[in-house]
Simulated scan of single mutants.
Amino acid sequence: MNIQIQTVHFDADNKLLSHVNKRIEKLKTFHDHILGVEVYLKLDNVVHQIKDKVAEIKVIIPRHTFFVKHESKVFEESFDCAFDALVNQIKKRKEKALA
């Protein structure tokens, strides 16, 4: 499984990167054939004082790609909400494939 984490408009600290990596490793329990994972962590509305933290996750499996995006005021919260939505997508896809 190829994992890429990219940050846009900021430099992520080790605590955030380790949180993301730890959660991404859990994806293996939901699907056996994950080819790649791309995580984008972005600061939105950089011009204004209010900076929204956006997390985008893209998971590539054979013949399908999952994509989720979530934003909040904290990167960990954005990533966790996006990750949970992604897990739900993967579970639904797997149930359809088995049915």
Rank of each mutant, 00 (worst) to 15 (best):
Q4Y: 13
T7Q: 04
L41F: 01
D11E: 15
L41R: 04
E25Q: 12
R23S: 14
E77K: 14
N21G: 05
L27K: 08
I50F: 09
K26L: 08
V20F: 05
P62N: 02
I34R: 15
E77H: 12
H64G: 01
V8G: 03
V54Q: 08
L35K: 15
L16S: 10
E25V: 12
I60Y: 06
D11R: 15
F75H: 04
L35A: 10
V68Q: 02
N14L: 12
F66A: 14
D52F: 02
L16K: 11
V39W: 00
R23K: 14
S18V: 03
K28S: 13
E71L: 07
K22N: 05
V59H: 04
K69D: 15
H19P: 00
K42H: 03
I34V: 11
V46L: 13
V68C: 08
T7V: 05
V20Y: 01
I61G: 01
N21Q: 13
I60L: 13
L27D: 11
E76K: 07
V47I: 13
K42C: 02
E25G: 07
K53S: 07
E25H: 12
L27I: 05
D52M: 07
H9K: 13
Q6Y: 10
H64V: 00
I5P: 00
D32H: 10
H19Q: 05
I50V: 02
F66P: 02
N14R: 12
I61P: 04
F30S: 03
D52C: 00
V54S: 09
L27M: 10
R23A: 14
I34S: 07
F66W: 08
E76H: 08
L35R: 13
Q4F: 14
Q49H: 14
F30W: 08
E77M: 09
F67D: 00
I50T: 09
K22M: 02
V59S: 04
K58F: 02
G36K: 14
I24G: 03
D44K: 09
T65Q: 03
I61F: 01
K26R: 15
P62G: 07
V20T: 00
S18R: 03
H64D: 04
T65L: 03
K73P: 02
N14C: 01
T7K: 00
V8L: 14
K58H: 08
G36D: 00
D32K: 15
K28G: 13
V47W: 11
H19W: 07
N45M: 06
Q6P: 02
D44S: 14
I50N: 09
